[in-house]
């Protein structure tokens, strides 16, 4: 089984998010970049499925040369090879077109992404890729099992869960529950240096949208602390002031 895992290079979850260039650009100064946490779940699942000679895992990133440490980390976790499509990941539409174009000439049985990236939170790439390739997809999977040529997937729905089956190839966005993220060991880190990392040029994609500025959410006022013996007062304020009950 050939498995493609698409990863994003995103700011660490503890990052303070600020902007530069008159609030038009994200301020990368001092930011530690990591594999998007949901993509780590996809990667761990792929490595598990491919273990014991059952398959081969390719990790793909659309990014400039600065993302290579993140890609090497994915290789250290156990992916067999990597592809970097050499372009700044302008938006989800751009990234999805690069992935779809690569897959058209390099077919895979299973294409995994995280459910969304924690920077732009779009959850678009997996469904774009599936549509561009006319493949079935699950946007947010909580469990994933493969038997022969069939995937059994549990996905979240409002108020519950749904279990579905679908023949491979399929595109799946993975969420918590699919696998536990892997931490690379020393051997993995050594091996990763020797694994292939192919850099390929991007294709042209028409730009349909553009982020023109960012703003930080309006800060809240000072907290109104209520005495623990005066719980009634909180109920009254939630009713008359906040108007939420």
């Amino acid at each position: 089984m050939k498995i493609l895992v698409c990863i994003s290079n995103v700011p660490d979850t503890t990052s303070k998010i600020t902007f530069t260039n008159n609030n038009a650009s994200f301020n990368e100064n001092g930011i530690q970049f990591i594999i998007n946490p949901y993509d780590e779940i996809a990667l761990a699942k792929a490595i598990g499925l491919a273990a014991n000679g059952n398959g081969k895992v390719t990790v793909l990133n659309v990014g400039e040369v600065s993302t290579e440490p993140t890609i090497r980390k994915a290789l250290a976790c156990g992916a067999d090879e990597a592809v970097r499509i050499d372009a700044a990941p302008r938006d989800a539409w751009f990234v999805a077109n690069q992935i779809a174009d690569y897959v058209r000439t390099n077919p895979y049985d299973l294409i995994l992404t995280g459910r969304e990236s924690i920077d732009y939170n779009g959850a678009q790439v997996q469904s774009y890729v599936a549509e561009l390739l006319s493949l079935p997809s699950v946007a947010i999977a909580k469990k994933l099992d493969i038997t022969d040529n069939e995937a059994t997937i549990e996905r979240e729905i409002e108020g519950g869960k749904e279990v579905l089956t679908v023949n491979l190839p399929v595109v799946v966005g993975t969420a918590e529950g699919v696998a536990e993220p892997k931490i690379p060991n020393v051997r993995g880190i050594m091996d990763a240096r020797k694994k292939p990392l192919n850099v390929i040029p991007p294709i042209e994609v028409t730009q349909l949208s553009k982020i023109t500025s960012f703003e930080s959410p309006v800060p809240r006022g000072t907290v109104n602390l209520i005495d623990k013996e005066q719980v009634n007062q909180l109920v009254e304020l939630l009713h008359s002031e906040a108007k939420v009950i």
Binding site: I17, I118, S209, I211, E215
Partner: peptide, 20 residues
């Protein structure tokens, strides 16, 4: 069209132009 959406897991709001 110019529209707002939440990004960076609600740590920021982006203003986006939609051109198609």
């Amino acid at each position: 069209w110019t529209i707002k959406k939440s990004v960076f897991s609600s740590k920021a709001i982006a203003t986006e132009e939609l051109k198609a």
